[in-house]
């Protein structure tokens, strides 16, 4: 147990986990919202923090955009207390959002302020999930400054994996590692046709531990339209995937969920045939 997680009175405080990626648009915000919700559904006290200053997004993904009064920069600059800025989720009372400032740029906060902020948050919550901006600049550095653990999100694509590898190196250098990996937007049919990098390929390339995998799933689009996390639909593949990841994050000894290959009858017959042949 490292020192940051013991309070003065010796009470164990919450874990600060940053979700980052290098490349933009691979699913950091989606992941933060769904893991935060799934952990809160398990009864944990969870704060999700939007550290993408200037490009506020986590609020709309979670459907909380109408409730924002103060933001992260207001707290850091002392215009609001943390409690005033935290927004309670509509359904889960133990889930709170700290929104990013929309009208400020990334220089509005520094690493030390982020460390102080996470220290305050970890005293109140079991999990503090930080949604990092893309890139490897100041915004990323601020987002990992106060983290105990880092989750790297990637997709099975050349550029996303390359950027993820840059992040692996930077996390190691910042002594925040070892980072764990979520591979998002997997298309099982493409993988089985040899036209998409497989989970094994990506793991071999990045050589970090696998936290979980999430399939490409239109449920994500629909859930995002509604401002609800996909984990509210436990029949959806993406919802189940994020619940599985939350279990593993919480320390449950469960294997990574297998994504069923939703392929056609012909494909299935062919692969059955192929399996017998090899």
């Amino acid at each position: 147990m490292d020192g940051k997680r013991l309070s003065v009175s010796g009470v164990i405080m919450g874990r600060v986990i940053t979700v980052t990626s290098g490349k933009g648009g691979v699913g950091k915000t989606t992941t933060t919202a769904n893991l935060g919700t799934a952990l809160a559904m398990r009864g944990a006290r969870v704060a999700v923090v939007d550290a993408d200053i200037g490009l506020r997004n986590l609020d709309v993904v979670m459907g909380l955009e109408n409730r924002i009064v103060y933001d992260l920069v207001d707290v850091v600059e002392g215009r609001a207390r943390l409690r005033q800025a935290l927004i309670k989720d509509k359904r889960l009372p133990e889930l709170c959002l700290l929104p990013a400032a929309q009208t400020r740029d990334k220089d509005a906060v520094n690493a030390q302020q982020m460390i102080d902020l996470t220290q305050q948050l970890r005293a109140e919550f079991d999990f503090v999930l930080i949604d990092s901006p893309a890139g490897i600049e100041a915004g990323f550095r601020n987002a990992i400054a106060g983290a105990d653990e880092v989750i790297i999100v990637t997709t099975p694509e050349v550029s996303a994996v390359r950027d993820a590898d840059r992040i692996v190196g930077l996390i190691e250098a910042a002594e925040k590692g070892p980072a764990s990996l979520i591979i998002n937007r997997i298309k099982p049919r493409l993988v089985s046709r040899g036209e998409m990098l497989s989970v094994e390929d990506v793991l071999e390339l990045l050589a970090i531990s696998l936290l979980g995998i999430v399939p490409e799933d239109e449920t994500i689009v629909i859930a995002t339209n509604r401002g609800e996390a996909a984990v509210y639909d436990p029949n959806s593949l993406a919802g189940r995937a994020y619940i599985n990841i939350a279990q593993r994050l919480a320390g449950e000894d469960v294997p990574v969920m297998a994504i069923p290959d939703q392929q056609g009858v012909l494909d299935r017959l062919l692969s059955l045939f192929g399996r017998r042949r090899t």
């Binding site: 990098l197 390929d201 062919l270 042949r277």
Partner: peptide
């Protein structure tokens, strides 16, 4: 590909080698 496992020139294999 389905029958004989991943071909050496499949796009995934190519992506992996390039990466």
């Amino acid at each position: 590909n389905g029958l004989f496992g991943r071909k050496r020139d499949s796009s995934a294999e190519l992506a992996k080698q390039r990466l």
